[in-house]
Amino acid sequence: MLAIVLIPREARRGEIIPIRIAIQHPMETGFRPDNFGRRIPKNVINSLVCRYNGVEIFRAEMGSGIAANPQLQFYTVAQKSGDIIFEWVDDAGQAGGERAALTVSG
């Protein structure tokens, strides 16, 4: 699964930084029929976790109300240089991940 993570490359210690992620995913609601009238099984990203240097800073549990190709944005405080790692899993059991490096000065 493809995703784009957008964070500032560099930040000062204590600075509040935005973290954004967009994931390519159909987010199938489970309510829609296909062309033959059969129900398309629900398949959404049901849980997404973001860790900053191993510490969980954000968690989302999404349901069928979230549109396809979801985008999430949240904020965190820059503390020290390290990796921001996203991991998520959908109803079909497919897992995805993406990481971004942050350099903190000061």
Binding site: I4, L6, A22, N69, Q71
Partner: peptide, 8 residues
């Protein structure tokens, strides 16, 4: 970033 087409 907001443009979902960029995923493609």
């Amino acid at each position: 970033f907001s443009n979902p087409g960029m995923l493609w």
